[in-house]
């Protein structure tokens, strides 16, 4: 989600770390931005699901200097229909599995499906990888023109 105060993206699970010092341990239903410490109300899961049903194209927010350093994006983070380029493999123990299917750093891929496993299209073929493998690949998003 996005912090309404500093506009930085963060994962709700990161908030737990931010309130580690509080006795409430996150039971207050509020969520604290790990970047600026601003508290907001957590968005109910159901609302989030409904929102995901109707994907809205995000408006480009003005770039803040702090935002320039991009968080790393993993293959498992990509959404259905997105295009990306493989950047690097984080866990080299699994690298042969990708190499054998012709997926190398620099290969452009298209996400066909992300559940029950990530299905990628690369060239004229489609490949399935489970989440655990998808999490070991760093990618770079290719924006649609």
């Amino acid at each position: 989600m996005q912090c309404p105060s500093c506009h930085k993206e963060f994962d709700p699970s990161e908030s737990i770390a931010a309130c580690a010092s509080c006795a409430g341990k996150g039971s207050c239903g509020r969520i604290r931005c790990p970047h600026c410490g601003n508290e907001t109300v957590r968005e109910p899961n159901i609302l989030q699901k409904i929102r995901n049903l109707f994907p809205v194209r995000k408006k480009k927010s003005p770039v803040h200097p702090g935002q320039l350093k991009k968080a790393k994006l993993l293959l498992s983070d990509l959404k259905q229909g997105q295009n990306a380029m493989i950047e690097a493999f984080e866990d080299l123990a699994h690298v042969r599995k990708f190499l054998s299917l012709g997926i190398l750093p620099g290969t452009p891929v298209h996400v066909v499906k992300r559940f029950p496993a990530v299905v990628l299209r690369s060239g004229y073929s489609e490949f399935a990888f489970d989440r655990r493998l998808a999490k070991t690949v760093r990618v770079q998003l290719i924006e649609d023109k």
Partner: peptide, 11 residues
């Protein structure tokens, strides 16, 4: 180790 799943999907 837990197994990993990766497979080419033929048309």
């Amino acid at each position: 180790e837990a197994p990993a799943f990766y497979l080419e999907m033929p048309p």
